[in-house]
């Protein structure tokens, strides 16, 4: 685990403990993906609405705390502000609001929405003959929603080669409706689909930079709770829990020792 991603995870734990909120395991599964995205795309934290930016959408909005901590790392705002997470008067809700948080492109929460809006944005950029790109991070659990597959069909049919789907393959739905063989599944929808280790930042950056023919899908194999064995081995118990004092110290120690 690279140092920046370890520190982002520490912030996630700190803020979750302080606020009493947070989907920690799912936030931990997307840290490297989001970190890799913001290292790769064109963006300007000092001017989040810069017209030349690429667009990154977190469709699985319940990983908002992960997104906030990554955006803070890249300088969109001070991470101290995020400590109000989920509290009355805070701009930092448990699902992100694009009108409140700099860098958030689409307000998400209900699953299966961000991807369709991203398709529309990518189409709009094509119509404007812009070379800007749209990237959408979706979850495998989110992909239980039919709208995900509608959007993939439409994006593929429109041949949107400026559109990238990052599929967080953290196997969260093994208990009810898993999405087996996602690489093949997306390929069968006409996408240029590849598989990477979702915790390998360099591999993610290489995949993000690769030119694709048509819609690009990066299936990122991840571990829910990556970095803390306690979380990774008890993903359902920890789905939306925040740690108490003793648990927090244990998780911080595990993170420092990198037990997963």
């Amino acid at each position: 685990m690279i140092a920046a991603c370890r520190e982002i995870r520490r912030n996630i734990l700190r803020i979750s403990k302080a606020s009493g909120h947070g989907h920690i395991p799912t936030c931990f599964s997307v840290v490297e993906m989001l970190y890799g995205v913001y290292q790769t795309i064109r963006h300007d934290p000092a001017n989040p609405s810069w017209e030349g930016r690429d667009i990154s959408i977190l469709s699985k909005g319940h990983a908002s705390l992960g997104l906030y901590c990554v955006l803070a790392h890249f300088g969109y705002f001070d991470v101290e502000k995020v400590h109000s997470y989920g509290a009355f008067g805070s701009d930092f809700g448990c699902h992100p609001d694009r009108l409140k948080v700099p860098g958030v492109e689409v307000s998400t929460g209900s699953l299966g929405h961000g991807i369709g809006v991203g398709v529309g944005m990518a189409l709009g950029l094509k119509l404007k003959k812009s070379d800007r790109r749209v990237l959408v991070l979706i979850g495998d659990g989110e992909s239980n929603e039919g709208t995900v597959w509608e959007s993939v069909m439409v994006a593929s049919n429109l041949d949107l080669d400026n559109f990238t789907i990052l599929f967080d393959n953290n196997r969260s739905q093994e208990r009810c409706l898993p999405i087996p063989n996602p690489v093949e599944r997306f390929r069968s929808f006409g996408c240029d689909s590849i598989e990477v280790d979702g915790h390998d930042v360099e591999a993610l950056k290489e995949a993000l930079s690769r030119r694709a023919s048509g819609v690009k899908v990066i299936v990122a194999n991840t571990i829910k709770g990556y970095g803390c064995r306690t979380l990774a081995e008890n993903i359902f118990a920890w789905h939306r829990r925040s740690p108490g004092e003793a648990e927090f110290q244990k998780l911080m120690d595990e993170l420092d020792a990198e037990t997963v």
Binding site: G118, L123, L125
Partner: peptide, 10 residues
């Protein structure tokens, strides 16, 4: 959703 995305692009 696609229409919303188009709207976001002006």
């Amino acid at each position: 959703s696609v229409a919303a995305g188009l709207s976001a692009q002006g």
